[in-house]
Simulated scan of single mutants.
Amino acid sequence: MSLWKDFKDFFFPRTCMGCGKKLLVHESVVCLSCLSGLPFTGLGNTPGNGMERQFWGRFPIERASSLFYYAKGGEVASMLHGMKYYGRRKVCRQMGNWLAAELSATGFFDGIDCLIPVPLHPCRLRQRGYNQSGLLAEGISEQTGIPLCTDALVRTHNNRTQTHKSGYERWQNTDGLFAATVQAASLADRHILLVDDVLTTGATLTACADALSSIPGIRISVVTLAWAK
C-alpha cells in the first residue's frame, strides 16, 4: 500500500490548495504552513452573528455559519478556485467533512432535517461535470448523517458566473433564478440547510430561500465554506 502511495505521489503529486507546493505524506488538502494561516471565522453556532444578520429582512433565517473568511487572492480563494474549476472532487468532499467536524461540536446541525446544495443549471453541470456545492454537501452528510435533498430546488436560468459582477448586478442576476419542484412539498414543517461554497452578497442564497418560501412551515438555515465579510 505504501509503495502504491509513493508511486502515485511521484507521478501525480498532491499539491497544497493554498500555495501549490507539494504536500507531505501527513498533510491533506493544505500544507501545515497554510493551515496555520487560514482565516477561521469562529462563528460556530452563535445566534445573531454577522453572517446571519446579513440575511435579516430578506427571509426568516434560523441560523447561519461559515468556516473561513474569504479574501481575494488569499489561500481560501485559491482553495475555492481549485474546487470549482480544476476537478478537485475529493477535496470538495473533504472540505465538507472538515466543515461538518468543526461545526458539529457547536450544535449547529442539531434539528436539521436535510441538506440542500445550491443547484447548478443542467447545462453548466454537464459542462463542469460536478457541482462543488453538491459535493460539499455530500461531505457534510457523510460526517453528520443528515440526508441530502437534491430534487426540491432547480436552477431555471443558465446565467453567467457572478464572480466579476457588482453587488447590484448580482441581485439582478438572481431574480427568479431558482424554482421549487413538486418534490419540495415534502419539506413542509421541516428545517432545511442550504449549502454553498461561498457567501458574498447573499443574493444567490436569498433567491434559493425565496423559491422555497411558499412551503408551509419550512425553516431555513445557511452554511457556506467561506464568507466574504
Rank of each mutant, 00 (worst) to 15 (best):
M1V: 15
D6S: 07
K8Y: 12
D9N: 15
D9S: 14
F11P: 06
R14E: 12
C16T: 03
M17S: 11
F40W: 13
G42P: 09
L43D: 03
L43F: 15
L43N: 05
G44T: 14
G44F: 10
G48W: 07
N49W: 11
M51H: 06
R53H: 12
I61V: 15
I61N: 00
F68S: 00
F68G: 00
Y69D: 09
G74H: 13
A77V: 06
L80K: 02
L80A: 04
L80N: 05
H81S: 13
G82K: 05
Y85R: 10
Y85A: 12
Y86F: 15
G87V: 09
K90P: 02
Q94N: 13
W98S: 01
W98V: 11
A101Y: 08
E102M: 09
T106L: 09
T106V: 11
T106S: 15
D110K: 15
I112L: 09
L115T: 02
I116L: 15
P119E: 03
H121G: 10
H121F: 11
P122L: 08
P122G: 07
C123E: 12
C123D: 10
Q127R: 15
Q127A: 14
Q127W: 14
Q127V: 09
Y130K: 08
N131V: 07
G134E: 07
L135W: 04
L136C: 08
E138V: 11
E142G: 04
T144N: 05
L148D: 01
A152K: 01
N159P: 00
T161V: 09
Q162K: 07
T163K: 12
H164C: 05
Y168K: 13
W171K: 07
T181V: 07
V182M: 01
V182Y: 00
Q183F: 08
A185W: 03
S186E: 07
I192T: 00
D197T: 13
D197M: 14
T200F: 10
A207R: 01
L212Q: 01
L212T: 02
S213R: 09
S214A: 09
I215L: 01
R219H: 03
S221F: 11
T224A: 15
T224K: 04
L225H: 03
L225G: 02
A226Y: 01
